[in-house]
Design a protein around this nucleic acid. Structure first.
Lengths: 227, 227
DNA sequence: AAAGGGCGTTAAGATTGTGTTAAGGTGTAA
DNA sequence: TTACACCTTAACACAATCTTAACGCCCTTT
């Protein structure tokens, strides 16, 4: 499963669905916009990891969209445009675009260029602090390890996923349904029983027998407390 | 004066001087190579900030050059090639190139794409080393040799690639998918079985039977520990 | 007080993932 | 051509993980 969120900005419906279909087949998550202002709003609210942007939009010019977004964000932007003049390319690139493809474009090339960006994101993501600390608990997302009082805990994949989910939403109550959907992907009826089992083992491993860290909300779900 | 050093790899003299003249006029420093092996050596010794690489070289293929350099360095590589097939682009990009221009190309577009990379370099300063040391293990990227306690280890090409990949990402968990993509290029279903075999032989050669150096993260992938 | 729903806990079985070995297959150099 | 190194694939044992079912507890409702 790919965790990258792509914002596709394209007013031409056939091309948009070509791109989104391609993204879907390659396990990207995506959101779409057909207008420039919509794109700016979405990139602020959803914080996509990558933006694929058409320059010819009905309301404002694509270059304007780049400029706006660049005021606050360094999110990689790939231009997909019918404009094939050097001048257009240069303007877009200098205004902040990261790459430029001219229509008609090969979806395979688009995918390859997406992978180039992903590679880079992976490198730089790890420079920033990707660590979660809550009391005696520490999650190192980069190494995929969990520590309790600086001793490494061994968690199984599902346990780890579950813990990360709770940690990402500290203080919030997560419903059973939401947790199951997030961890298992497909909502399986029987997995509610599994969830209880995993909670038990997780609590045991986290030395959380008094449920100070992970609280049960009967009939609703679970919540991790900020300690 | 621009402080960026560009390595230009191009065997065709007119094109090379076109590029270098352009660079000079725009205040870049540059060095040149006309062969692949020379390019590899120069990128190790001079540590350029950006590489402009032609794929059709007299000694070894440009893609091979990318692969070699990527074993130790994340230096941005722009391909400038006569090969305009999608397939060629995708291979080069997947092997580690950052951008791809087909000949004939516009020097202004090249400059614009250089500026894109510069912008990025300013944000994230990256370092490249020609030697990697971790405990008893030492990798000399330039000569392509691996030593364990100063004794040379003989590794096969894939073993070496795998080790470099792990070394470049010490402490990070690399997923099976990512490893396979990086080492084999094309994600082949069956190569997961191969990966396990290679891990076994690598561990044996590295005297890592206790898995202190390379740890398994079940269901996820592998991680090299910093010793 | 009894009944029942929701939850925690445990353990056994099913399932999946991994390490290891060895047998082919492929390509290359002598 | 053989010899050789290397890679892939299959097979299997074993280990880790997940699911499922059973049971007891607590709390609420009747």
């Amino acid at each position: 499963m790919n965790e990258y969120l792509v914002l596709v900005v394209e007013d031409d419906k056939p091309i948009r669905s070509l791109i989104t279909t391609t993204l879907k087949m390659n396990e990207y998550k995506y959101i779409t916009a057909s207008k420039g202002n919509e794109a700016i709003m979405l990139s602020a609210s959803h914080k996509p990891d990558i933006i694929i942007l058409d320059l010819g939009l009905p309301d404002i010019d694509g270059v304007e969209v780049i400029e706006q977004i660049r005021k606050w964000s360094d999110v990689p932007i790939i231009i997909v445009s019918a404009r094939s003049e050097d001048r257009d390319k240069i303007i877009a690139l200098d205004k902040g675009a990261d790459d430029y493809l001219t229509k008609p474009f090969s979806v395979d090339e688009l995918l390859a260029r997406l992978r180039v960006i992903q590679r880079r994101l992976m490198r730089t993501e790890n420079v920033s602090v990707t660590e979660y600390i809550n009391g005696k608990l520490r999650i190192d997302y980069v190494s995929g390890c969990v520590y309790l009082n600086d001793e490494e805990l061994h968690l199984t994949p599902i346990e780890y996923k579950l813990l990360c989910l709770l940690a990402k939403n500290v203080g919030k109550v997560l419903t059973h349904k939401y947790i199951i959907q997030s961890v298992w992907g497909t909502p399986d009826d029987n997995s509610e029983a599994s969830l209880r089992v995993f909670m038990a083992t997780l609590r045991k491993k986290l030395d959380d027998s008094d449920q100070a860290l992970i609280q049960t909300h009967i009939g609703i779900g679970y919540r991790m407390m900020r300690l």
